[in-house]
Amino acid sequence: MIVFDQVNKFYGNFQVLRNINLTINKGEVVVVIGPSGSGKSTLLRCINHLESITDGVLTVNGISVSDKKTNINKLRREIGMVFQHFHLYPHKTVLQNIILAPMKVLGQTEAQAKETALTYLEKVGISEKAYSYPSQLSGGQQQRVAIARGLAMSPEIMLFDEPTSALDPEMIGEVLDVMKALANEGMTMVVVTHEMGFAREVADRIVFMDQGQILEEATPAEFYENPKEVRAQLFLSRILNH
């Protein structure tokens, strides 16, 4: 469903992604981890073309993301994205945040879009906040709205870039629970996170990155119990002992 074939990316002279080869299949949950600056966000952001690759081929559903002829707006309908800092639209209510893209991009009527939005709000457990503004919500609630906003487009893929890193500890659980439910429903997910509990429970695969390279790909059990790469071992010991 998502295929990186020999993908490289440079910022000027600096190489952020090195020879990335990675295939993510339909329904898979892939967790990407690695030290700060290793290129995790960049990898994720290439998938929906928020960043462009320098060379190699990156396809989503068989469509090349970097091809000039690709209608990127159309491709993005199939790819929801959740950010570390939520990025809800502050001038719009929760409901308006969610119905905007379904109406403007998919051409749904307001009634249709509202109905879907309310279903997803219920799913993420905050239907009572439909008419609040983002600034009136806690971080955990905002992130759940952001997830509902992504889901309202009925995407085939959901990307998460450190969705719980900006949250107070007591709110991390509520967001992870929503993500776990989503994974169990068979959503294809690529998640950058250091939440080991989540990774162990729902990830089909862990991708470990360092300095722009994928150093190791393994099941969570293999990876956490017996990482092969020295740098992965070091990284794990650091996040376990902090």
Partner: peptide, 20 residues
């Protein structure tokens, strides 16, 4: 992030500018 959130939901640059 506002522009990125808007664009990643499939809005065009013009729509994101105008609406968000």
């Amino acid at each position: 992030g506002q522009m990125e959130a808007a664009r990643s939901s499939g809005l065009t640059y013009g729509q994101a500018m105008r609406l968000i």
